[in-house]
Design a protein around this nucleic acid. Sequence first.
RNA 1: GGGGGUGUAGCUCAAUUGGUUAGAGCGCUGGCCUGUCACGCCAGAGGUCGCGGGUUCGAGUCCCGUCACUCCCGCCA
Length: 595
Amino acid sequence: MKRTHHCNELRKADAGSPANIVGWIDSVRDHGGILFIDLRDREGKTQLVLDPENSELTKIFGELKPESVIQASGEVHERDGDTVNVNLPTGEVEIHVVDLLIHNQSKTPPFPMDDEADRVGEELRLAYRYLDLRRPKNLETLKLRHKASKAIRDYFDANGFLDVETPMLFKSTPEGAREFLAPSRLNPGKFYALPQSPQQYKQMLMVAGVERYYQMARCFRDEDLRADRQPEFTQVDVEMSFIDREDMYGLIEGLLKKVWQETLGTEIETPFLRMPFEDAMNRFGSDKPDLRFGLEIKDFSDTFRESDFKVFSGTIASGGSVKAFNAKGLADLTQGELKHLEETAKSLGAKGLAFIKSENGEWKSPILKFLSQSEQNKLREDLSVEDGDIIFFAAGDWESSCNILGRVRLESATLLEKRGKIERSPTDWKFLWVIEFPLMSHDEEQGRYVATHHPFTSPVPEDIELLDSEPKKVRGQHYDIVLNGVELGGGSIRIHQPDLQKKVFEEILAIPADVVKSRFGYMLEAFTFGAPPHGGIALGLDRLVAILVGRDSIRDVIAFPKTQKGQDLMTDSPSVATDKQLRDLHIRSVLPESD
RNA sequence: GGGGGUGUAGCUCAAUUGGUUAGAGCGCUGGCCUGUCACGCCAGAGGUCGCGGGUUCGAGUCCCGUCACUCCCGCCA
């Protein structure tokens, strides 16, 4: 009673031969006498024909419910010309069923199993994730994800990389993301932490002489969720010895080329564009710019340095910047849309969102009366303002004026796209490397420098001397790979000199010496036993696959994702632990006061 | 921690200014139908309007609170 074919296998040439297939009932069409079933498995559909002459079969007609699992055997018949279904690869044949076994009868599913279900609330689909995944569209996503990981594994294997597993029970290192803790039964009062990434282990593998390492690494971060952030996710983790940045760019460009070939059959162009962090911020207001459209930001600090408009000149006098971009063709935006853009700007710390509309041959703006003719001319020229355009401004410190206009630029793109004035095709692949990030940034809250990426990133050689004098100006040998406004991954050349690493920890990041010793002591020691120069990168596999299949949320490409509150609605986790479990682990729950 | 959105039948949605018995499509149940393929036709069942409170002669609709899901800010070395 073994199946002989899957549901997308039989063709005209099979006519006359016996077949035995299994699958889920996709639909039943009962004509009173003759009855048709579309049987579905993960490969496709095949039509079964149940003839009323077979009285054994007629008895169970009433039990053939959609989504039931059945097995059917019979003979493959070629269909008559006018009954061929051109929409199915198996549409030229059907199986005339002799025997039919119901393996498992299905209740009526809580939501439709066709493409209609894309509109069904995610809450319900997550509670019945096994049904949602059963839909062909979602099985295709799992298949594509598999193809992507296989391409990745094949690529690294072919390039001499070793797949090495690293511990999930790691040590708590409070720098960085909040961690999930795992209590240790054998060590009362002590805890492991689940890794935010295998960063330190992979560097130790380099010291160990592995030379080329990769891993599909599960990572855990106990931070708030987003469409592109889950508390556990998968990272394509890579580390190599004896390389420089150029080697890494080439390696990853080759990897992505192969992934695109193997999953979509698409050729992407390499090498990728490279853009320094500062340019990305200045031109696009983002460290992960979407290059599928223009609307570039320009700096007008020089233009407004002496301006009568005090909001601008005052900002510049106190060291800030005035920036603007032309949202080309958006002068017809509605009051509501303008208000929304203002809210966006304000949510990023702007006091408001200054704008100038160019409509019917004249400029209209609440701030126009403050701007001199030469200032207006400069804007018109530098931003190529034409009728129907609208200029948006931001004034503030360099970083926040970039960020504000970066967001307004993205929102404007959405509005322009609705009007058909620009296009952001999900298959217009605009890759780039963002490079030369600052090694550290000043944390206002903590009043000290923190590593922009992580504290193991090596400074670019010519900036090392600035470490003591102007740490802010030191650029790191860090690189991010960006695609269509999404940060796919990032990495760096690491520090492999114990003295430099110690200096970064203690002097620049101002981590107390005893903390450095307890947390990173083993690492500093490891670097004294022959540490090779090395570097690496990590790519978010979930984001990569989401982009490949054109989904906005990584939940769509994870088999069992969690909701925004970190719950799995299917298994109803997390859940309370028993008193015995807690006792064994030497811990106690202290619930927040509810009043 | 903060801001926005959503919540009405199993599913997707509608319900005028607060006003009679809350509707439609799909699905489901029953019946008819021997070439359909999202089969068709006929009939029927199905509602804690997320939950709690308030205003009102009267609340799906207005107000307050709360829960869930979601988008974003903070956060994510």
